[in-house]
């Protein structure tokens, strides 16, 4: 084989090249399709479990959930209907009562976007819980968003009331400097992690501005039984 290679360079072996690449590409395609077929259901199941776990973490006490989609033109549809848009997750108590809706928003932080899941309670029109999904914030500062007890207190009953027109929040959620919180729609920042706190505020505002009006309008769809 070695000798053959050295005497070859004069002629370009077109047929062997095509044949080899063809065989390899076919083989590769077969393998990838096979792997996709085998793993796809497993991946989908993992993703479903992960979302469920997150939703129940943000809304403790809930036992079942149903997935909905907010479409681009602001309608609320069940995910099963096949519509595409922003997913939201309605969580129910054991008695079948709607407890809260998990909504996702993101805001620019110190090192890229911070993605957060919030629990929105339609009855009090407020945010009642939060969980950071994705952030690149500096460890030691950024993770305070999930652990700092004083900061968590902000998300016990953060007002997200829809205005009279029913299209946006009456008072946009904002992050204020530490110790200057005066209104229920303000978030008291963490000292030393102001930018991350602001990102959290932006995420809450984005999530609520988009989801709260739709949820309030189509509340019946969420509360009615399957």
């Amino acid at each position: 084989m070695h000798v053959e290679l050295q005497t070859q360079p004069t002629a370009t072996p077109v047929w062997p090249m095509l044949r080899t690449l063809g065989v390899i590409a076919t083989l590769s395609g077969l393998l990838v399709v096979l792997a996709d077929q085998i793993t796809q259901p497993m991946i989908a199941e993992k993703q479903r479990l992960l979302t469920e776990q997150l939703v129940f973490q943000v809304i403790p006490g809930a036992v079942t959930k149903r997935d909905f989609i907010i479409t681009a033109d602001g309608r609320l549809e069940a995910t099963a209907s096949g519509a595409s848009g922003e997913p939201i997750y309605a969580a129910y108590t054991a008695a079948g009562q709607l407890q809260a809706v998990a909504i996702v928003g993101s805001g620019g932080g110190y090192a890229g976007p911070v993605q957060v899941m919030f629990a929105y309670d339609p009855s009090c029109q407020c945010i009642v819980g939060s969980q950071v999904l994705k952030s690149n914030e500096t460890p030691g500062f950024g993770d305070k968003l999930d652990t700092d007890p004083a900061f968590r207190e902000n998300f016990r009953a953060l007002e997200a009331r829809v205005d009279t027109a029913g299209t946006a929040l009456a008072n946009p959620i904002v992050t204020v400097k530490h110790g200057t919180k005066t209104a229920p729609w303000q978030i008291d920042a963490i000292t030393g992690a102001t930018i991350s706190s602001r990102a959290m505020g932006k995420a809450a505002n984005q999530a609520a501005q988009r989801a709260a009006p739709v949820i309030q309008r189509d509340l019946a769809k969420l509360t009615q039984p399957n």
Partner: peptide
């Protein structure tokens, strides 16, 4: 690339 794709799927699963 084929085997990397397989690993990619496997880790996701």
């Amino acid at each position: 690339a084929t085997f990397v794709t397989l690993v990619d799927y496997a880790i996701q699963a």
